[in-house]
Structure formats: C-alpha cells, structure tokens
C-alpha cells in the first residue's frame, strides 16, 4: 500500500527523465551517428579532427581549466573565512555570495559586456581618472573572467560545506599532537576537504567547458569554443548531425574529467598529502 504510494509519487520523475533526459540523449546519439540519408556513420564524431573543430576544443579545455584553477585558488580561502565566521552576520555574508546566482545568467554576462567594453563603463571611469584603459573585451581573458565570475559560487559552496562539517576536535587533536597551524591545515583540513574540492571542480569545469554564451558575449564571436561550434552547427548551419557528433565528443571529455576527479578523490581518502 505504502509502496504503491511511493511508486505513484515517483511517476512524475520517471516521465521527466524519460522525456527530458533519455529521449534527447538518444536523439543526440541518433543524429550524431547517422548522416543525412539516415545511414550509420562515424564521420560526424571524427569531424573533431578538423583543425577548426580541434582548435576550438583545445581552447575550451584550456580556458575552462585555467578558470577552474583560479576559481579554486580564490574559493578555498574564501570558504575558510566563511566557515570560521562566528558572528551573526554569517548568514548575510553567504547570502551576498549566493545572491548573483539568483539573477539571470545571460543578464549578468551582458552586464559584464557593457562594463568591459572598450567604450564601456569601466574604461570611461578609467579615462576620466587619466588611467590606462583596459583592452580586455573580445580576448580569452574576458572569457576566463566571465567564467570565474559566473561559476565561482559553485566552487565556494561545496568547499564551504565540507569545511563546516570538519569536527573542531580533529583540528585540536592535530594541535595537541604537535602540529602548528600550517601543518594542521595541510595534514588535516585540506585532505578532509577533498570531497568538496572535487565537486567544486566538477561543477565549475563542466559548465565552463560547454559554455557558448560567455564566449559569445565576452569573446565577441572571435574566439570559438567547442560550445560555440556546436551551437552554430545547430542554429546557423542547421546541421544537426555534425552538432550531435561533436556533442558526443564533448560528452566523452566530460565523462573522462569526472572519472579522473573521482579517482583523485579515492586516492585522497587513503593517504595524507
């Protein structure tokens, strides 16, 4: 009786995953592995070897890697500060970090476009102050900046969460056994926060790798990431077969990155750094 009720409750989710995850996925595979006449082929997937496509993949991997690393370096100290704040304003501080996430992603990036433009707000102010202007828009740096800005909270929050869960007595135990603050950090805090770092990396790296909005708006369509190439195949060229084929390649890279991080996680549990 109760079992049936639970099953009934899960029904919407079943329909959801079939309709919006499984069927689209199957369609991607269908289009990606066939040509226009419907014959089975690997040519769409192998198209990644084309210099234009390959270059866009490498740039995407590079930019998302760099922004993930910078996000991590920025987030860890930030998460530590947030986790150690004792005052009542703690909730407010975290809210300030999460708040931008509630705004539309496109809107936020558009805002940065107007801010960073050569004749944009920032440069106008700089000019007014007789300072050198920023020539950052439409460069890879602008894209990295956009990625960091948009994905930083996804790195901060999981790290903050694991740091909060670390028992203070463990840190006291390390100090008790003769470890100073730096040793305590590297031998206890850092290894225990690896799970948070891992999920942070995944949550930043994957969307950064696949983005096309950020590179479109801040890269001025001059720097094509693999996400842009795929988007254009679907929208401009209406070549769903090629778009799907390249998507499959991208998926493979995402799966590889997730497996790598998962392996790192296992290692991190066994031994201290």
């Amino acid at each position: 009786m109760k079992n049936k009720f639970v099953k009934l409750l899960s029904l919407p989710y079943v329909f959801w995953s079939i309709g919006f995850i499984i069927i689209p996925l199957l369609m991607v595979f269908y289009y990606g592995l066939t040509d226009k006449s419907g014959r089975l082929t690997l040519s769409n997937v192998l198209n990644i070897a084309l210099p234009v496509h390959f270059k866009s993949l490498i740039i995407a991997l590079l930019l998302s890697f760099v922004s993930t690393v910078i996000c991590l370096l920025l987030s860890y100290p930030l998460a530590m500060i947030l986790a150690n704040v004792k005052s009542k304003s703690k909730g407010l501080m975290i809210l300030i970090f999460v708040l931008p996430m509630w705004m539309n992603f496109l809107l936020r990036t558009l805002a940065w476009q107007t801010l960073l433009e050569n004749e944009g707000v920032i440069n106008t102010v700089l000019q007014f102050l007789h300072l050198p202007v920023l020539k950052i828009i439409n460069t890879p740096y602008a894209i990295i900046f956009g990625m960091i800005y948009n994905f930083l909270p996804f790195m901060v929050l999981p790290i903050y969460n694991v740091l909060c869960k670390i028992d203070n007595n463990l840190l006291n135990a390390a100090r008790d056994l003769g470890a100073n603050e730096i040793q305590t950090f590297f031998k206890v805090t850092l290894p225990l926060s690896v799970p948070g770092i891992i999920s942070g990396i995944t949550m930043v790296f994957v969307p950064a790798l696949t983005t096309f909005v950020i590179s479109d708006l801040l890269g001025g369509s001059k720097i094509l990431l693999i996400g842009n190439v795929i988007e254009q195949e679907f929208t401009l060229n209406s070549n769903w077969h090629l778009g799907s084929g390249l998507s499959i390649v991208l998926m493979i890279f995402i799966i590889i990155s997730m497996i790598t991080t998962a392996i790192f996680d296992k290692d991190g549990e066994g031994s201290a750094l």
């Binding site: 028992d167 007595n169 006291n172 135990a173 100090r175 056994l177 470890a179 225990l192 991190g268 066994g270």
Partner: peptide, 18 residues
C-alpha cells in the same frame, strides 16, 4: 597547545578519518 608537553584523549576520540 602544540608546544605543550601533554596529550589529550578527546571525548569523542577525534581520530583522523582520512
């Protein structure tokens, strides 16, 4: 604490789980 010549056995053991 880390300079003191004494050691503590904590109330809930506080073993390093990693």
């Amino acid at each position: 604490a880390y300079k003191r010549q004494l050691n503590t056995v904590f109330q809930k053991y506080a073993l390093f789980t990693h």
